[in-house]
Design a protein around this nucleic acid. Structure first.
Lengths: 181, 181, 181, 181
DNA sequence: AATGAATGAGACTTCATTCAT
DNA sequence: CATGAATGAAGTCTCATTCAT
């Protein structure tokens, strides 16, 4: 799995031969196929792992009784920090989505929509109670801000000047101020 | 070219056989190779076309004598509208970047950095004169907002409830208010 | 033609695209095909040119009234010098023979056999009159000595220490002393 | 390998499709590529096999304490007999040399030069002690005589009037008498 | 006489996957 | 559990040659 993620992130799913993954993992192709029925299964596993955690933590925050603005801030922070923590996974996730088989793709999309909708609901709640501006459709706002997060893997470097926490804070700040009425 | 873009956008670069492009374009593979020495060259052409236009228009706006906030607003609007106008190109652009050969990749990256730096300079100018908040690194703000733009192709649908102009206006609004001190 | 010979000698007949020959000659493929119906025709032309000259000169010597030993010496000298003079042609000649179409191959082979037989007759004449040793089949001797000549192109370099005339003299000397009773 | 050698000898390396080799060997192309990474590797293997044996046997003879003339006689005999024993290999060897990739070509060339130099040293030794004539450069003599050997494959036929041993003896005789002072 | 776009067959090679051992 | 040889389909690209202009 680790080997697969690293290689997928570096060269892309299609461009990575199964043999190479097996070699990098120190096993034979046969052995690999003993555990994963398909090359795609390796990819699916990446999706399962990432989505599970992020969803759970997001829901926990959303269900908490923090004020709305702090909820949103915490959610953004979390998704940024966890994305950076598993940067390769994130790169693969957003880079190889279109290569998934239709069935899996639909599954993942459904799961993401769930995530999206929950956050959208939070924003709409804020719009109703006046915490957030109302002249922007909530769904567009969600797409906007998560779009930014999804591209993190393309420019963030662990050795760069910004720590994961700093990026997380800045992202959350930008999101919140953009939504301030 | 059109055929290639459509197919690349739908199935991905690696997953699209040259034969299929040729068929879609109504020519033979041989004829295709008469004009494009390599499958990659088709991809490169997409990059050249997109970058050229966007860069030119951005510079024109940046060089104009609009107030800073209006400049930024116009730039975001333009990039959103042109991205939506050529949505397939955009999808291919951001989806297949990692499949480019190192040489081309570096070229494209350089061009994008130029774009990025120019916008960054605008924001820094605004930060110095107090138009924009200073507690966020300009470069991070640029990555943040263009990250959002880059993911447009993944969720925007021309038949959806929002017109290109509306998305453009909303995106620009979000960017500006997020940067308001 | 010159371009073709040079390229065939350097890269081999099969490995040289017609396009490259045309480029090197400063014409288009179309123009080339206007003069040579087939790629093979270019090759055939090389054979025609080389064989014609060598055969004529050999016959002239053989028909002269020099003593036998001097005839053989002159023939070997001539073939060595002319081979070196057109080294590229010679390389192509011996390197690409097996790629000729059966018909052409048979033609060339027939011509060569004529050459071979004439020289063989000279040697046999010498064997009968006691000038040359008789314990070696004349035909084998011919193959032996011309075999050596045919490989000239593989090691001789014009910038090397030996001039064409020196090589010619040495080769002829070796041949003659090997045949001395 | 056997299938490859036969086909390369008959039609040439470039003119023999991998598919045909596989068919002749009764395997699939895939299976072939499981053992040989490249078509060229098949060719390289021919070179390795031929050179190894000939070099070893030549050195054994050169290191023996036979008189000089007998050493040379034995070396020529051996190279002729082994060439005839594996005639197809020899044909391929001398016919396809120029198609090897530069790296391999240099390797083979180096090995051959070693062979050449060793024989040259023997002749020079004979020239110093008066066994061989001194008016011919040793290196040229070596090229001359091995040139003859290299062309064996082009005319020798197992069903012809001469046995391998006869050819070997004659070749060795010719070489020796040509070098007699 | 010349162009150069176009063809179509075929070349080498790769690779996900299977399966006997 | 694991191996690794083998498959077979497909993929990218090349190239001699033709032909309308």
């Amino acid at each position: 799995m680790r080997a697969a993620i690293t290689l997928f992130a570096r060269k892309g799913f299609d461009a990575t031969p199964v043999r190479e993954i097996a070699d990098a993992a120190g096993v034979t192709t046969g052995a690999l196929y003993h555990y994963f029925a398909t090359k795609e299964d390796l990819l699916v596993e990446v999706y399962r792992q990432m989505q599970g955690g992020q969803r759970l933590r997001m829901e926990a925050i959303a269900d908490s009784d923090l004020p709305l603005r702090e909820k949103l801030h915490a959610i953004i922070s979390d998704v940024v920090e966890s994305t950076i923590a598993d940067l390769d996974e994130a790169v693969v996730f957003f880079q190889s989505f279109h290569l998934l088989s239709p069935r899996v793709r639909e599954m993942v999309r459904g799961e993401r929509r769930g995530y999206h909708d929950r956050v959208k609901a939070l924003i709409e709640e804020g719009q109703r109670e006046g915490t957030f501006r109302s002249d922007v459709p909530a769904t567009l706002a969600v797409s906007y801000h998560f779009g930014a997060v999804h591209r993190l893997g393309l420019w963030y470097h662990p050795d760069g000047p910004l720590s994961a926490e700093e990026v997380a804070r800045h992202f959350a700040d930008l999101t919140l101020s953009s939504l301030t009425p």
